[in-house]
């Protein structure tokens, strides 16, 4: 009984925090703090064309997500092979991962996977559960002040270091494949990207965090194929020279 009362109180507190936040939602504030923590570990690539391009691809996909977020996409400087989704519409991909990709469609799958995490509120729900579990801690209850945003950033670092459960990753794979297809990209790139991950799996330090926070890429491949991936429609044409050219320019500039 006491537990239920605490949960209700915590939920009410969250609602109050959200109502008092003005234009920025609680989800966006949490995402902002999480993005700050990640960007504290790896800075944005200092290249306007690079950031513009990844934003163009990301926005091009996100407009089909059916959810009204202010989307922000960025490339961070890191040899690590990884990508991150933050609540409220923040998505970051490492330069190390981009260098492994072969096409804009490959990048589209990576971004679509992360967009799916956002729209399904995978990380936000984890943070909400943590807030409820630790509702006695003021650190996680109030996020409107700057110092408290910093505390939330540090707390979110734990979540990204620990990762989501496997079902969330499989769901993001499925929804990401559907989403990129809606946007006009080739869903075969899901296989291409995961095959790339299979090949670099092992003791490569660049994938240490990725593989500790995601299911084995072989399991992800099997799950997608079993889910009916090959029934998704492919684009009418095989290649697009402009798409190839602009992706190559983007990747080569990293």
């Amino acid at each position: 009984m006491i537990g239920k009362s605490k949960l209700k109180f915590a939920a009410l507190m969250l609602a109050v925090v959200s109502l008092g936040a003005g234009a920025q939602t609680d989800e966006e504030r949490v995402g902002r703090s999480s993005a700050a923590q990640l960007l504290g570990a790896a800075k944005l690539v200092e290249s306007a064309p690079v950031q513009t391009y990844v934003n163009a691809v990301g926005q091009s996909i996100a407009q089909f997500a059916g959810v009204n977020y202010k989307w922000h996409f960025g490339v961070v400087t890191s040899d690590s092979i990884n990508a991150f989704a933050m609540p409220g519409g923040y998505v970051l991909v490492t330069s190390g991962l981009v260098k492994q990709l072969q096409s804009e469609d490959d990048l589209a799958y990576v971004l679509a996977h992360e967009i799916a995490h956002v729209t399904r509120r995978h990380h936000y729900q984890v943070i909400q559960r943590q807030r409820l579990a630790e509702q006695a801690s003021k650190n996680l209850q109030e996020v409107s002040k700057e110092d408290e945003m910093v505390k939330l950033s540090l707390a979110s670092g734990q979540i990204y270091a620990r990762g989501l459960d496997k079902t969330a990753e499989y769901e993001a794979d499925r929804l990401g494949a559907e989403l990129m297809t809606r946007a006009g990209y080739d869903p075969v790139s899901t296989l291409s990207v995961l095959e790339q991950l299979v090949q670099i799996k092992g003791n490569d330090p660049r994938t240490e965090l990725l593989f500790s926070t995601h299911p084995n890429p072989v399991e992800r491949l099997n799950a997608l194929v079993t889910a009916g991936l090959d029934r998704l429609p492919r684009p009418a044409t095989k290649t697009n020279a402009n798409r190839e050219k602009r992706f190559k320019s983007f990747r080569d500039s990293l």
Binding site: R32, S33, A35, A36, Q37, L38, L39, G40, A41, A42, K43, L44, Q51, H72, G74, V76, T77, S78, D79, S80, N82, Y90, T94, G96, Q100, M149, V150, S153, L154, G157, Q158, Y160, A161, R162, Q196, Q199, I200, G202, N203, D204, P205, R206, E208, L209, S212
Partner: peptide
């Protein structure tokens, strides 16, 4: 394609836990 590097810059679990929040880059984003 199977390449190993001696160390990956940034974004290890330790980096995520010990990093200092960078709100300047968030603003750029």
């Amino acid at each position: 394609n199977i390449v190993s590097t001696s160390a990956a810059r940034g974004l290890s679990a330790k980096d995520l836990l010990q990093g200092k929040p960078n709100f300047d880059d968030v603003a750029k984003l």
